[in-house]
Design a protein around this nucleic acid. Structure first.
Length: 496
RNA sequence: GCCCUGAUAGUGUAGCCAGGUCAAUCAUCAUGGGCUUUCGCCCCGUGGACCCGGGUUCGAAUCCCGGUCAGGGCACCA
């Protein structure tokens, strides 16, 4: 079939620098503190793509070193999300399992006097760092440090009382390098480690060492970490560890669709949206329920690429790609809204045969029997006036005899198919109620869009009853949608 | 306040490092037509951009300087 010629124009991601086949190791580094969203899918696909392209190794690594953030259900949520994206990994680990490793490295630094304990309040540390000002704690000697470390472990200090800082340079131009905090006390039970630890490494310390420990060859990440790279490299240098290749791109977002918990949680709490899988959300579960397929997200990722500009992608890019991909998948069904009764005065019984897909006759067809009336869409009815001839699609022609606000009386007008005539979808009296959920952008100029979801009551052909939740269909002339069964009720989330 | 990035059609993106072949690529979008028992898909055509100012050069989207705007960082978050 020469219709489907899409493959030839999809873009590829560029070659990776310093990549040797068989020696590329990349990582999926989620923090299990929420649900996976399109940003995770984006970064995940890039890491997966290069690991596979160079026949390398992909590690799923849960960055769970802040017990106050992480929850066990999210570990599973990420695995589910990556699997849905068809991103498979070769190895799975939790950074929190490597606490002895971090402690061992910290002890080495303690012994060398590269760190000190700082008891300044958090705001003061922050202010001093901004101003490049040194605090008195910087002068402490290393013998005391060893003792303080042990005292912290023994619980002689409270959370927030003291932190462990790396002695670098308080006047460094990159403020990240101004004696960063590498360990702090968090008295909170960890979903995997329980109460075993109270002194936890910060992101830069754990990440820098963990990348070495995992023998990561290429760190592929979004550039909100750009200025931390210098510190992470410094930490590895402290131990003489080699540096991975770092490739960064800008964090990307979909227009009007924030991914941050800060913005989404209030909407859920105030019931403006239904939950983390609301079809307006760019979470993976939201996108799935909206009828977006993983390949569309992958193609969009290739299209946007590893750009360092700040992409704010319009939904039309994702939706356009999705529509083209889903066209071949989705079987066609009839559904009408604002139904208008069409009475066929001289109606004889007619059995219509409607193919499931216009391009794939092998998918078969369903038979629907029309007796003396059908319902058509209110919008279509508006276009009809007395004397008009139109066709019930895949059935026969009718001529309008009389039209009222609620119904149209018609007379049979033959079954010869005419090219130019209006062809409209219809349902019979055994149709089922269908709820259509029509999403729109969640935020307009940073404000919640109260019209972001429209719920439309419709009537669909009975055949829809047999579809399972998760099926992607096309309601002809209404759009593609994702079917959800709610007991006997059929709900369809329209993709756009 | 300081530091680091970036700026190409409505949106995203290629080109920039190694200046000419760029009257600037591709996708999406818009629009006209074809195909079609859908307003979908597919096919053909059309439309639309190098942030601003200066400099270097025979020649600048590309190099240099200044500005503007945007994003990120300066967390006991990652």
């Amino acid at each position: 079939m020469l219709k489907r010629s899409r493959e030839k124009r999809t873009k590829e991601l560029p070659a990776l620098q310093n990549a040797i086949e068989g020696q590329v190791v990349t990582r999926l580094p989620p923090e299990p503190s929420g649900y996976p969203h399109i940003g995770h899918a984006y970064a995940g696909y890039i890491n997966w793509f290069y690991a596979r392209k160079y026949k390398g190794h992909l590690i799923l690594r849960f960055e769970d070193t802040n017990p106050r953030n992480v929850q066990s259900e999210y570990y599973e949520a990420f695995k589910k999300g990556y699997r849905w994206m068809e991103i498979d990994w070769d190895e799975e680990l939790n950074v929190s399992d490597d606490m002895p490793y971090f402690y061992d490295h910290a002890k080495q630094l303690l012994g060398r006097g590269d760190v000190y304990f700082c008891a300044c309040p958090a705001e003061e540390i922050s202010e001093n760092r901004r101003k490049g000002r040194v605090c008195p704690h910087r002068q402490s000697n290393k013998e005391n440090n060893q003792q303080i470390w042990d005292d912290i472990i023994d619980g002689k200090y409270e959370e927030g009382q003291i932190v462990c800082r790396l002695r670098i340079d308080m006047s460094h131009s990159n403020a990240v390098m101004r004696d960063p905090n590498i360990f702090r006390i968090i008295d909170y039970s960890h979903p995997i480690q329980g109460d075993r630890y109270r002194l936890w490494p910060t992101y830069d310390f754990a990440n820098a060492l963990e990348d070495y420990r995992n023998q990561i060859s290429h760190v592929l990440r979004s550039n909100e970490f750009a200025s931390r790279g210098e510190l992470q490299a410094y930490i590895r240098d402290l131990f003489g560890y080699p540096q991975p290749v770092i490739q960064e791109w800008s964090r990307f977002s979909l227009e009007g669709s924030p991914v941050s918990k800060r913005k989404i949680r209030p909407l859920i709490e105030s019931k403006k949206i239904s939950g983390w899988d609301d079809i307006r959300l760019p979470t993976l579960s939201g996108l799935r329920r909206r009828g977006i397929i993983p390949e569309a997200i992958r193609e969009m990722t290739r299209e946007v690429g590893l750009s360092v500009a700040q992409p704010i992608v319009d939904w039309s890019l994702l939706l356009g790609i999705n529509r083209k991909l889903v066209d071949a998948i989705a079987n066609r069904y009839y559904c009408v809204t604002e139904p208008i009764l069409v009475e066929i005065s001289d109606g004889k019984q007619f059995s219509a045969e409607i193919p499931y897909h216009p391009d794939f006759s092998d998918r078969g067809a369903r038979q629907i029997t029309i007796k003396d009336h059908v319902h058509i869409d209110g919008q279509d009815a508006k276009q009809l006036s007395k004397g008009d001839i139109f066709r019930l699609k895949h059935a026969f022609n009718l001529q309008v005899e009389k039209k009222t606000a609620k119904s149209i009386k018609c007379v049979f007008a033959g079954d010869v198919l005419e090219q130019a005539e209006l062809k409209i979808q219809w349902v019979t009296s055994d149709s089922i109620p269908v709820q259509l959920f029509v999403p729109d952008v969640l935020f307009i100029k940073d404000k919640f869009n109260p019209k972001s979801l429209q719920i439309i009551e419709g009537f669909g052909e009975r055949t829809l009853m047999v579809l399972k939740s998760g099926t992607i269909v096309q309601l002809e002339r209404k759009g593609f949608g994702y079917v959800e069964r709610d007991g006997e009720k059929v709900k369809i989330n329209l993709t756009e």
